[in-house]
Design a protein around this nucleic acid. Structure first.
Lengths: 151, 151
DNA sequence: AGCCGGTATATGAGAATGCATATAATGGAC
DNA sequence: GTCCATTATATGCATTCTCATATACCGGCT
C-alpha cells in the first residue's frame, strides 16, 4: 500500500485520511442497508430491532437498547410505533412492573424473514469477487474491529 | 468459520444474521466516530464534509453531495450553517451563477486538523493488536468492500 | 429578445434523533 | 408502613434528516 508517502491535494499525507476512509465505509454500509430496506418501508433502526428480537424476544427495552446500540428514548418511541403497526407486542413484566417485555408478532417475524432475503441478496454483491478464503479473512477482520470498538 | 450450519434461537441459521452483523459493524463504526467528535461539538456529517473539503475545496455543492454521500437538501442547510459559523465560505461561481463554490476557511481547516488528531488516536485503538501485515489486509478488505458497494 | 427543458441550490413540512427530564415502580432502611 | 435512592420507561424540546417542491440560472432554439 505504501500509503505512508502518498500525497493528496493540499500536501496532506494520505494516512491522515484513513479515519475518513473508515467513516466513509461505515456510511456506505449504512446507506446500502437503508436502500435495501426503503422499498419495504422500514429503516435501519427498525431493522436492527427486528434482528435483535428475531435472535431472541421477550426481552426488556433496556436489553434491546444495548443489543441494537440505540438510545433508550429513541427506542421507546420506535417500539410504541411498531406496536401500533402490529410488528411487536409490548407487555409489562409480571415480576417487575417497570419493565416492558417485547415480543415479535407473527407479522413482525415474517417481515424480518422476507427482509432477510432481500438484504442477503445485496449482501452477496458486497462480497462479489471474494474467494472463500477472502470471506473468512474479511469476517475475521470485521469481527476483530467490532471487538476492539466494544472494548 | 463453518457458519453454514450454526443455529441460533428460533431454529434460524447463523447466516441469516450475517446482514445484521454487518449492519451492526457499520453502526458501531458510526457511533465510534460520533463519540470521538461529540466533545468537539461536531457530528459525523460535518466531519465528512470537512474531510471532503480538506482533500480539495472550491468545489460545488453537488460535488460535495457525491463525495460525502449526502442528500443535497441536507448538505445545503449544513453548509449554510457552517458558513454562519465561519468554517466554510460559499461563493457563487463566476462561470455559472447557479453553482456555489465552497471553500474551507482557515478556521475550518484548523478544526479539521485538530479533529484528525483526535480521530486518529481512537483509530489506533480500533486497530489495536493488528500487526503491520494485518493492517494492510484490513485496509485492502475495507477498500474492496467500499469499491463493491460503489459499483 | 423570449421561451423552454434541464440543472444547481434552497426551502417547507413531517419524521427521526439526541439530550434533558418527568413519571412509575422497585427494594431496602428505618 | 413510609421514605428514599435507584432503575425502567416515557415525554418535551430543539436539532437534523428526508422527501417533495420551489426558485434561480444556464444554454439552445426560434
Amino acid at each position: 500500500m505504501r500509503s505512508k508517502s502518498r500525497r493528496v491535494a493540499g500536501g496532506m499525507l494520505f494516512d491522515d485520511f484513513l479515519p475518513h476512509l473508515i467513516a466513509t465505509l461505515a456510511h456506505r454500509l449504512h446507506l446500502d442497508l437503508v436502500e435495501k430496506l426503503r422499498h419495504e418501508g422500514i429503516n435501519a433502526t427498525r431493522w436492527r430491532i427486528l434482528a435483535v428480537l428475531a435472535i431472541g424476544d421477550g426481552i426488556s427495552v433496556n436489553e434491546i437498547t444495548e443489543r441494537a446500540m440505540l438510545q433508550q428514548p429513541a427506542l421507546s418511541r420506535v417500539l410504541i410505533n411498531m406496536e401500533k403497526e402490529r410488528y411487536v407486542l409490548r407487555r409489562a413484566s409480571r415480576g417487575d412492573a417497570r419493565c416492558v417485555e417485547v415480543f415479535l408478532t407473527h407479522k413482525g417475524r415474517s417481515l424480518f424473514n422476507s427482509l432477510n432475503v432481500v438484504v442477503r441478496r445485496r449482501q452477496d454483491r458486497l462480497l462479489k469477487g471474494f474467494s472463500r478464503q477472502d470471506k473468512r479473512t474479511a469476517l475475521r477482520i470485521l469481527r476483530r474491529l467490532g471487538r476492539n470498538m466494544a472494548a
